[in-house]
Amino acid sequence: MKLFVALALFACLGSVALANNEEYCQNTVITACSSSAFSGNSICNARYAGIDHVEPEIQSYINAQLAKSYDYLLLATHFNSYQKNRPGFQKLYQGLSDRSFDDSIALIKQVTRRGGVVDFNTRHESSGSVSTKRGTLEVDELHSLALALDTEKQLAVGATHVHSRATHAADAERDPELAHYIEENFLGKQAETVRKLSGYANDLAKLMKVPDPSLSVYLFDEYLQKQ
């Protein structure tokens, strides 16, 4: 009987302690996350490490990815016309357009996951901003490959800049998680795309060193369809 009373008393004391602890935690959260504290400096968010310093570079890179996706879409449309009729080149540029758009969505999710907000009404510039100046996109097959190669190199440099900004900044501005994300999802992929397009451009340039390169271009387009 005495043992039962002791256990009951211990359980009651534990319940009181738990209730007091829950009340304390609740009061702390209410204080920290009150409506007046959500003006921008609240601790109840997903922001930490150097996200404040890297976020402008990431948003600039998102804008560049979207712009390049649109440019690639125009190239795909150009080669899909009845005048050009190059389904292989159309497939190549449609794939690059889709990839750049998907990368933009992935970056937006990454920014919001880290507590940021992507604002397309504000133009974000940084020292590593990717150029979005457009020349004419109604070009021939070889020049289109050169244009795509330049574009991918610009995107690769932009990704490298974001990675460097997140890695080599001062301690308070450093963000290893973002650096790892960029390295894992962008740097290797961009390097592979640059290598592929440079190979395409050099191969086609060699094939076109004939008096009438129309057959060479046709066969190269057939090759692109199979990739």
Rank of each mutant, 00 (worst) to 15 (best):
R114S: 03
R114M: 15
G116A: 06
G116N: 03
V117G: 09
V118Y: 13
V118E: 09
V118R: 00
D119K: 02
D119F: 08
D119T: 04
F120R: 05
N121R: 11
T122Y: 08
T122H: 09
T122Q: 13
H124N: 07
H124M: 05
S126L: 09
S127W: 06
G128D: 05
S129T: 12
V130F: 02
V130S: 01
S131I: 04
T132F: 04
K133C: 04
K133Y: 12
R134Q: 13
R134T: 05
G135S: 08
T136N: 12
T136E: 13
V139C: 15
V139W: 09
D140G: 05
D140R: 11
E141P: 01
L142C: 11
L142M: 15
L142I: 03
H143V: 10
H143L: 12
S144R: 09
L145T: 00
L147K: 13
L147I: 09
A148M: 03
D150H: 07
T151M: 10
E152G: 12
K153M: 10
L155M: 12
L155K: 02
A156I: 03
A156N: 12
A156C: 15
V157K: 11
V157G: 10
T160R: 10
T160K: 14
H161D: 05
H161W: 08
V162D: 03
H163K: 07
H163G: 04
S164N: 12
A166M: 01
A166C: 02
H168Q: 15
H168T: 15
A169S: 12
A170F: 08
D171G: 11
D175Y: 06
D175M: 01
D175V: 13
E177G: 04
L178K: 01
L178T: 09
H180S: 10
H180L: 15
Y181Q: 02
Y181P: 00
I182E: 01
I182K: 00
E184K: 11
E184D: 09
N185T: 11
G188L: 11
K189H: 11
Q190A: 03
Q190C: 03
Q190Y: 14
A191E: 15
T193P: 06
V194I: 12
V194S: 03
V194K: 12
R195Y: 07
L197Y: 06
L197R: 01
S198V: 07
S198E: 15
A201P: 03
A201W: 00
N202H: 15
N202W: 00
N202S: 10
N202E: 15
D203N: 11
